[in-house]
Design a protein around this nucleic acid. Structure first.
Lengths: 161, 161
DNA sequence: TATTGTTATACTCTATAACTATA
DNA sequence: TATAGTTATAGAGTATAACAATA
């Protein structure tokens, strides 16, 4: 797979079974909010990867691109904070996106230590397609929920943690 | 950290910020059910790791132990299917749990290729404590939800994917 | 031939710690 | 001294592919 344009590959779809298997006793797992979340995530992750395979895009890469699109000129540390990861992790994400030609660094005028991060023209174009595909993916995974239910789900999720 | 009783270490808590940062435009991310899920998971994961640090237990390890407790004698392939991961991944989880002394293999009487997996006595004892801590963790992360809301959240999550 | 467990390999994601250049 | 970015290192989690033993 991976029609993609670069080295950074993606975990690979897999023909893995559904998270819940008949005839198996899931014990306390079935009572935990956290495990319901995890199970949903496991299911959804499959569709996400398949949706993004052609672009070599992973969840953190999509987050980074979206953040840079909406906040052009962010510094690396700001990006890391916004994503909730360590700086060293942000370096890797940015590096992968640079290899894909989606992100460029510009030396900051004010602070010679810092770089200004932004999407390239082709990165912006790619993000348009990616975003469209992601929106479809998001529709797909939540197709059994009404608009009200989606809203309620988001509300309840935001109360968590 | 890691008062734990074995080599297999755990990612490490970290003093990372919250997933949502003020002054940053999250763009389309704020509209996606999938990202709300991801964000909640990121927040919760911190508490999970801190809760489990003393036991060197990770989410998949907890799932495996719970499944083996409720379905003693499972084969490796069955465990992998129940967890929704590849066999090779299950090998690693089982291996880590063996190193911790929580799981034992017994040669299957019927099929000489297969092993019968089960918790050890100390694994069962450990699971009791671990389960108690996990339940508290689950209460903690969902403390802002009423019982009805928790139930509704589980229902909506199960509709996803 | 098909399945079971295993190993080899590869990749992402994440973290901490130490380093360099600047502030 | 403190911050920005980077690199080195490490481990978890996941996957595919190939292999030996057994079915």
């Amino acid at each position: 797979m991976n029609t993609g344009e670069g080295d950074p590959t993606v975990p690979g779809p897999s023909q893995r079974l559904n998270a819940q298997v008949a005839g198996v006793d899931y014990g306390v797992l079935d009572e935990l909010v956290g495990y319901a979340l995890r199970r949903a995530q496991i299911r959804i992750y499959q569709d996400f990867l398949e949706t993004m395979a052609a672009w070599s895009i992973t969840p953190p890469r999509f987050s980074a691109m979206t953040l840079l699109d909406a906040n052009a000129g962010m510094k690396l540390t700001e990006l890391a904070n916004a994503m909730g990861i360590a700086r060293s992790g942000a370096v890797q994400v940015v590096h992968a996106l640079e290899k894909l030609g989606h992100v460029k660094r510009t030396d900051s005028a004010v602070d010679r230590r810092a770089h200004s991060l932004a999407l390239t023209a082709s990165g912006t174009a790619a993000l348009r397609s990616i975003r469209r595909a992601i929106k479809q993916h998001d529709e797909r995974i939540s197709t059994r929920l009404s608009e009200d239910e989606k809203k309620e789900l988001r509300r309840l999720l935001d109360l968590l943690g």
